[in-house]
Design a protein around this nucleic acid. Sequence first.
DNA 1: TTGTATGCGTTATCAT
DNA 2: ATGATAACGCATACAA
Lengths: 352, 352
Amino acid sequence: MAATVTLSDVAREAGVSLATASRAINGSANRTVREDLRERVLAAAARLRYSPDANAQAMARGRTTSLGLVVHDIADPYFSSIAAGVSAAADRSGLAVTLASTRHDQTRERGLIEVLQRQRARAIIIAGGRTDDDALNAELRRALADYRAGGGSAALVGQPVLGVDTVVIDNADGAAALARALHGLGYREFAVLAGPAGHLTARERLDGFRAGLAESGVALDPANVIGCAFTRDGGYDGMQDLLRRRGSVELVFAVNDVMAVGAMAAARDAGVDVPGELAVAGFDDIVTLRDVTPPLTTVRVPLVEVGVAATELALAPPSDEPRLVHVEATVVLRASTPPRHPSNGNGAGSAS
Amino acid sequence: MAATVTLSDVAREAGVSLATASRAINGSANRTVREDLRERVLAAAARLRYSPDANAQAMARGRTTSLGLVVHDIADPYFSSIAAGVSAAADRSGLAVTLASTRHDQTRERGLIEVLQRQRARAIIIAGGRTDDDALNAELRRALADYRAGGGSAALVGQPVLGVDTVVIDNADGAAALARALHGLGYREFAVLAGPAGHLTARERLDGFRAGLAESGVALDPANVIGCAFTRDGGYDGMQDLLRRRGSVELVFAVNDVMAVGAMAAARDAGVDVPGELAVAGFDDIVTLRDVTPPLTTVRVPLVEVGVAATELALAPPSDEPRLVHVEATVVLRASTPPRHPSNGNGAGSAS
DNA sequence: TTGTATGCGTTATCAT
DNA sequence: ATGATAACGCATACAA
């Protein structure tokens, strides 16, 4: 910080007091600075190329102008879409976004929250689903409670288990609707790439899918529920497992799109035609899907809007009770799950 | 900011002076606090759940702990990969990343730099290629010079036209190598989805491609150079244009991958088989490409590493002259550009 | 309306 | 080694 020009310099240059300079440059609460003075100040500021120090302002005002965003991996289209929404909404509120990434290590979340707290971020948005690790959740809960006690507000995208405002995606309903839709298309034999054990989003989607199937009178064979990482490579590996010991499965539901896309790659590499030999469906409707082949059936989550909603939630006046904003997930049928066993008419690969 | 615990509180609780508390909690320059005292302080801090105020520290120390990143669109895989690299490198240096997005409006870049300057970010990374708008560049140049005069350092990913350290991607060489490789595969009739007029990255890639072709004795018909936006939709629209008035084009080179992917979608929607009827190549090798069909030939740019390099450049001790780090771009041939007119042997669609 | 003086939370300088 | 105390750059309560 070499020759930084301060507000005092501007005041001197303009021949006014520090206070007047301050009031002229931002519009102080109890307004009014005589027009000629204000102009002198602004002119001086411009001449000196004055740049207000946000840190000093933060100290003096007692609040910063920044908002924290915690993601697992910014290169994942799921998170980058949410980030785009958060960024847009923060912009509108004149807030700068501080991006913190766990790099897929949940245990780092706590530390990131603390960093954001040290920065006195006005609000923290945590994207990415929770796990059922109670100890970890308790820790986070406490970190967030602390943070909020200091005047910050937080919002979560996922499951409302941290005691803060939460944007809740209707995973179960969406997955159930998907199951019904697929059943309606004629599918009867399913497998699920179910993600990791403790992952709540994965679980909700699996459970919802299973429930939707049950409604249609179809049971999901536990042997066809395959655990794997919640990533593209997890989907790839899971699909390999499945193909190795495939029974009569007609359709594979991956609990998120990046996994589904990985699964399709595995099928391709194994020479299994999608959807000819095996249909695939995902969840999220990440933008990438526009350009995969075949177009992937999925359950759409409006990710950018989710980011906006989380930001607005976090920025809204605080409430006593954690608020919940529900976001619907809607089935989008595409070519990766063509109709099968049509009730009347001819089908592909059915009958004798 | 309700009941924020300050360092004074901690000092009082520990029965030491403010100064000692400060020294105990971070390791002050001239080290040493008696062990028992240090422990008392740390215990008190933990008991009170003390969280240092980064803004106050920034004021006192004269330097912040944050790094700014300017992108056009964080949801674009090109930028999100660079962001991942920047984020990782910043992490290693204990810096928090402030994400600023132009939302595809170049004129906003200037304002974003100013915001970052106000935050007194230690360094600013600007991702995304330059244009040939001299007025705009001069403005940015000045904004950056100002910022650097204040002690900040900046690094750019793109063309070294702003007077700051720059990570330069060998666009021309990469594109030329691609042209030669494609010529080697037997292609003779090319079209280019060339991006917008003033875009330097687009221009370098176009020029490089043209030069590579020329080396091989092939001329690029100006009528087959199609201007369009530097986005997926730009590629889609450009391809539509091309298909409408297609002559004998065998291969379409889109100057970046998202455009190429859009172009493939347009071809698909128009019922044109890729690569059967028309081959396609892109540039960047964004991660998305793993999962498009057919696999896209491209020129690989190590985006995450580029982000890391830019960050390291910006964080390195300042130098008088702007430094340049060159990053090679390497051709990756995939199924979207199968061999054609093989010199000896049988080819597809060649000869009579 | 304008100016003066104080405080924000921390580090660093200077005594002790 | 520890403790007062002066910055850091700005906003604001209060005085004029």
